[in-house]
Computed example of a mutant assay.
Amino acid sequence: MSEETETAQGPVVRDRRRIDPQTGQPREQAPAQPAPAAGGDAPAQPAAPSVGGPDDGAADAELEAAQALAAERLEELQRLNAEYVNYRKRVDRDRDVARAAALSSVAEALLPVLDDVHLARQHGDLTGPFAAIADKLEATLGRFGLERYGENGEPFDPAVHEALMHSHSDEYEVATCVQVLQPGYRFGERVLRPARVAVADPQG
C-alpha cells in the first residue's frame, strides 16, 4: 500500500513496512527525531563535564586537610607509644630496685645469725643437723645475691674494709689485710657491712 497524502476528509495512513512490496528490498529507516519539548523548544542537550573547575580545587583542599590530620594523628600515636615504652622501663627498673632493697634488708637482718654460723664453723662446733641447716641457709641467701668476703693477704680497700688495727711491716709494699676479724657482706654492688680487718702498713 503506497503512502497516501493527508487530507481533511479522512485519516492518513502511512506505510511503515521495512520491506518494499514492489522491489522486495529493505527500506532505509530515517533516524527518529526527538519529540519537541513543550512550547516548541528543542530538547536540551546534557552539559559536558567541566575539567579543572572549582570542584577540583575543593577536592584537593579536602585531600590536603585529610593528609595533615593523618600526619598529626600518627605523630600523636608515636609520642604515646614512646611514653608508654618509657613508663614500662621505669616501672621495671623501680620494681627491680624495690626487690633488691627488700632482699638486702632481709639479708642484713640475718647478718648476726650468719656471724654465729661462721664462728661456729671456724671452731668446729657446727656439726650434725645444724650444719646442714646452716649450709642451706647460706646457699639460699647466696642464690639471691648475698656474698661474704674478706681474706687474709688481700690489699686494704677503704671502700669495702674497715681497719680496726694497724701495724707496720717490711713484708708489704701496700697496706694489706693481715687478719680478718669479722667478714664483710655485700648484696650485689651494695656493701651491707664492710669487712673488719687488721691492717699492716709498709714501713716508712
Results as ranks from 00 to 15, higher is better:
2 S>A: 14
2 S>D: 11
3 E>I: 14
3 E>P: 03
4 E>D: 11
5 T>N: 10
8 A>N: 08
13 V>P: 02
16 R>S: 09
17 R>C: 01
18 R>M: 09
19 I>H: 06
20 D>T: 04
24 G>C: 09
24 G>F: 04
26 P>T: 12
26 P>R: 13
28 E>I: 11
34 P>E: 02
36 P>V: 10
37 A>T: 08
42 A>T: 07
45 Q>H: 09
48 A>R: 12
49 P>C: 04
56 D>G: 03
60 D>E: 13
62 E>R: 14
65 A>W: 08
73 R>C: 05
79 R>K: 09
80 L>G: 12
81 N>S: 13
86 N>I: 01
88 R>D: 11
88 R>Q: 15
90 R>K: 13
91 V>L: 15
94 D>A: 15
95 R>F: 08
96 D>W: 03
96 D>V: 09
110 L>S: 13
114 L>W: 06
116 D>L: 12
117 V>D: 00
117 V>Q: 05
118 H>Y: 04
119 L>I: 02
123 H>G: 04
124 G>N: 01
127 T>L: 13
128 G>N: 02
138 E>M: 11
141 L>V: 08
144 F>A: 15
145 G>Y: 05
149 Y>I: 02
149 Y>P: 00
160 V>G: 03
165 M>Y: 06
165 M>E: 15
166 H>I: 11
166 H>Y: 12
167 S>L: 04
169 S>E: 07
172 Y>Q: 07
172 Y>R: 05
174 V>E: 12
176 T>G: 04
176 T>K: 01
177 C>N: 14
178 V>C: 01
179 Q>G: 02
180 V>L: 05
181 L>M: 15
182 Q>A: 15
183 P>K: 08
187 F>L: 09
189 E>A: 14
191 V>Q: 06
191 V>M: 12
192 L>K: 07
192 L>M: 07
193 R>M: 06
196 R>W: 08
196 R>H: 10
197 V>P: 00
199 V>M: 02
202 P>Q: 04
202 P>R: 03
204 G>T: 07
